[in-house]
């Protein structure tokens, strides 16, 4: 429908046409504030125009979908979508259990812990596990690994990939004796080929890379996980202007969330821990401050308990807070051996 035929006042029509809006359909994805800026009118008036236009177009077309708020979804649709949501296994069943099946796609998950607790190990494990094919209950995707600390070791990734390939061979031997077509084992080097590795040496590079990811994932649609190991390192040096740091981090967090939603990728952000002084005592907190804690949808803290490693869900909109032991073995992340013993004893 053309603007000229719409039930708007003549001056409004004039403004719209001179701004280039000749058809009402063009207005469907315009926000009121944007329109107000473009036509140099008040926001209230812009809203009025959009309302009139949408009423007009609704009476004309029979479709019930509201075109004016583009991209809106009902909660029911979202629930159905979430049920089909795939998760990336951590290779530890206890850890997967508290996560509701694994690291969820479309969300930003932050994982923090002291040095040596296994953050990098978990990162490499996820980069490998995301490649498990559909037939084996995986995603069959690729991984982006952004290394800011230089802790990524190729031979370690190779070890974990080998173990993952062995596990898959074992699985097919046990459960699909008849299917010989699935016998083709993924070679460890294939796993490595599907990890896009970026080494980042400064915070400007880090921000530039995250801005670039949108384009990169558009070109590589099969990327299903983005791992940043760690988000923190370059932001802990020499920031005199803390307000600037907060702004940069905030912008980065928004972009990561957008990536997660837009492409349905799991964004895994590894963070360091620091001591925080409050109420006269020191205690442990994830680095980058309070404003950053809003940046992630889920927060998992890895910590020591006695001689065991534990994962604890600190924040999540859908998961209850729980903790589970896990261990880091030669094969990668696995269940804690003592936990298995306990179950056997019972």
């Amino acid at each position: 429908m053309e603007v000229l035929k719409s039930p708007l006042s003549a001056s409004q029509k004039g403004k719209l046409i001179s701004a280039g809006y000749t058809s009402i359909n063009l207005l469907s994805s315009v926000s009121p504030s944007h329109l107000a800026l473009e036509l140099k009118i008040s926001e209230a008036e812009a809203l009025e125009i959009l309302k009139t236009v949408s009423d007009g177009s609704r009476s004309e077309s029979t479709s019930t979908s509201c075109t004016i708020v583009k991209g809106a979804q009902s909660a029911w649709d979202m629930l159905q979508e979430e049920e089909t949501l795939v998760r990336i296994t951590t290779s530890s069943s206890d850890f997967d259990n508290i996560l509701g099946g694994g690291i969820s796609c479309k969300e930003v998950t932050e994982i923090g812990g002291v040095p040596g607790i296994g953050k990098t190990q978990l990162g490499i494990q996820l980069a490998v596990n995301v490649q498990i094919p559909f037939d084996y209950g995986g995603l069959g995707g690729k991984a982006i690994y952004i290394d800011t600390e230089g802790s990524f070791m190729v031979e370690r990734a190779l070890q974990i990939a080998e173990a993952c390939g062995d596990d898959m061979a074992e699985y097919s031997r046990l459960y699909r004796k008849g299917f010989h077509s699935h016998e083709v084992k993924i070679q460890p080097k294939d796993f490595l080929e599907n990890i896009f590795y970026f080494r980042v040496c400064s915070y400007t590079e880090q921000i530039a890379l995250i801005n670039y990811l949108d384009k990169f994932i558009t070109d590589h649609k099969d990327v299903k996980v983005v791992i940043i190991d760690s988000i923190t390192f370059h932001f802990r040096q020499d920031f005199d202007d803390m307000a600037l740091r907060t702004r940069l981090l905030g912008g980065m967090a928004l972009k990561l969330m957008k990536l997660a939603r837009k492409f349905g990728v799991a964004v895994v952000v590894l963070n360091q821990v620091t001591t925080k002084y409050s109420d006269g005592s020191f205690h442990l907190a994830l680095a980058l401050g309070d404003s950053w804690s809003h940046a992630s949808t889920n927060r998992i803290i890895l910590h020591w308990n006695g001689n065991e490693r534990y994962a604890y869900i600190d924040k999540s909109p859908s998961l209850r807070s729980a903790s589970a032991p896990y261990s880091v073995t030669g094969k990668g992340i696995r269940d804690s051996p003592s936990n298995n013993k306990r179950i056997k004893n019972i």
Binding site: E155, F196, Y197, F198, L209
Partner: peptide, 13 residues
């Protein structure tokens, strides 16, 4: 920016 191909790296550091 292009990612590094992990296979082109020497497999052993």
């Amino acid at each position: 920016m292009t990612p590094e191909n992990l296979l082109h790296r020497p497999t052993h550091t």
